[in-house]
Amino acid sequence: MGFRSEETPPVQNPDDPGRNPTLDNIQQLGQTNVPAVESNIFCMSVIGQVEGHMILPPQNKTTKYEHLIPQLVGAEQNPRIEGVLIILNTVGGDVEAGLAIAEMIASLSKPTVTLVLGGGHSIGVPIAVSADYSIIAETATMTVHPIRMTGLVISVPQTFEYLDKMQERVNRFIISHSRISEDKLKELLFKTGEVPRDIGATVGGPDAVRFGLINQVGGIGEAIAELNRRIAERRAGRGQAEVPLQ
């Protein structure tokens, strides 16, 4: 089982002292070779629209949930993968697909860290908070706003209740996976004057941390450091657990 797509066959005798593989590659292929080192961290990015039940038109950049879910299962099952890093720059998308991805990340037994770059909007919020630890770039924003409905709307109280239930699923996930209080989340959701033509709030990096939505402001350095720290912690914990009981 390997992650490398190709293995470069040795062109020359590897013991040749005069051999410089990087130089060989530059001369032969006009490119430098990235050393093929298998990482113990699995990196997954969620970009553009989160695509679920419907194929979105091609002008959308999408992240399809049927691609991410088996990858997450693979990462959980593969013994060589010790931690999962999720990088988010998403405008939101399908509620059910977003929640499915968030639940998958939240239920992984391996350490997980999310990094929000650029934006983690709408259904990106539950994905951002789903990991063990979440980091947001200083310039990144998260738009917290209620679910909208388009198309056929029947003007009966049930329509409102249906939407309210849908919103409640998202809210419950965010509250149970971050430090934000229900009151604060609802306050952000129903804020006016921040999002054009809509209600809701645009939360910047430092504010997301202040409100308890995200753990820390930082970047890739902090994300990898935190993930490595958690991996080391898990290794140490497992070492103790493996001591026979009798």
Binding site: L56, P57, G92, G93, V95, E96, H145, T150, V195
Partner: peptide, 19 residues
Amino acid sequence: MILHTVLPHELVLAGWDEA
């Protein structure tokens, strides 16, 4: 299916019937 996104639905679904 409900889309929860900051983009307007008409932008997301543009060209829906041509694909």
